[in-house]
Amino acid sequence: MTFTNSTRVALVTGGSGGIGRATAERLAADGMAVAVHFAGNEARAKEVVEAITSSGGHAIAVGGDVADEHAMAAAFDEVEAAFGGIDVVVNTAGIMTLAPIAELDLDAFDRMHRTNVRGTVVVAQQAARRVRAGGAIVLFSTTVTRTSFPTYGGYVATKGAVEAIVPVLAKEMRGRDVTVNAVAPGPTATPLFLDGKSDDDVARLAQAAPLERLGTPEDIAGAVAFLAGPARWTNGQTLFTNGGLA
């Protein structure tokens, strides 16, 4: 694919693995130039860039802590310098610690809040300032805000904040022709989801949805691609992408 002034440009935070990688590769397959963001694993981000460029797409890797406003401003600057602007921002970056609320380590909760809430606000703030007309901002929540699984209380608290931000930012973007939505995945076969779960737990969750399987990163990337592309009349919404679980 040839890069031109009309090529749309996407920045995917957390783009080095799992849902982020699938999203970066899907948006590239849809014809976008993609910035693959990483926080700590530059080598893995460069693998995603190589996968995209070897297929004829355009991609770069950019680093930085999503909760650090200076680092993210620099990352956005780098994307604009490389591609001339930004049309789509997808914030998949997040961390998860599971524990009953009565036993939740508050330092772990603070770390989740820093990445999942502050990080979302930092990325959304840069996106709100920079995304071009006709663009899209896609944030990430979780289906557990509906299913209320035990041990997810601290994590769900951070993701409920994301869902609250979405309609507010959508209204604040009035007149800009930029949509703001969130994707809320259900159980999805990623390292973040599978970590610490027994085979029985995974099998039980796989059977919970009517489709009787776990989601795949590509399933979630398809929902992001919809919101990033043709879904111009979907705005201020959280799209629950969970196979009918909730």
Rank of each mutant, 00 (worst) to 15 (best):
T4K: 02
T4D: 08
N5M: 15
S6I: 08
R8C: 09
R8A: 06
R21Y: 05
T23A: 02
A24Q: 15
R26L: 12
A28I: 07
D30Y: 14
G31W: 15
V34I: 08
V36N: 15
G40Y: 08
N41L: 10
A45L: 02
A45T: 00
K46M: 12
S54Q: 15
G57P: 08
A59Q: 02
I60Y: 01
A61Y: 10
G63T: 14
A67R: 09
D68T: 12
E69I: 09
E69C: 09
M72T: 07
A73R: 07
A74I: 04
F76T: 04
V79M: 11
V79C: 10
E80N: 10
A81C: 11
D87C: 04
V89A: 14
V89G: 13
G94W: 03
T97C: 07
T97M: 07
L98Q: 14
E103G: 06
E103F: 11
L104G: 01
D107F: 00
D107Q: 06
D110W: 00
V117I: 10
T120I: 03
V121W: 15
R129L: 08
V131P: 04
A133K: 15
A136L: 01
A136I: 10
V138Q: 12
F140M: 07
S141L: 05
P150F: 08
P150K: 06
Y152T: 14
V156P: 09
V156H: 03
I165V: 08
P167N: 00
V168S: 13
V168P: 08
E172D: 08
G175T: 14
V180R: 09
V180I: 05
V183M: 08
V183I: 15
P185M: 05
P191H: 11
L194Y: 11
D195V: 12
D201R: 06
Q207C: 01
G215E: 04
T216A: 15
P217Y: 09
E218G: 01
E218V: 07
D219R: 08
G222R: 02
A223I: 10
A223T: 15
G229T: 04
F240N: 02
T241Q: 01
N242C: 14
N242W: 10
G243I: 05
G243N: 05
L245S: 14
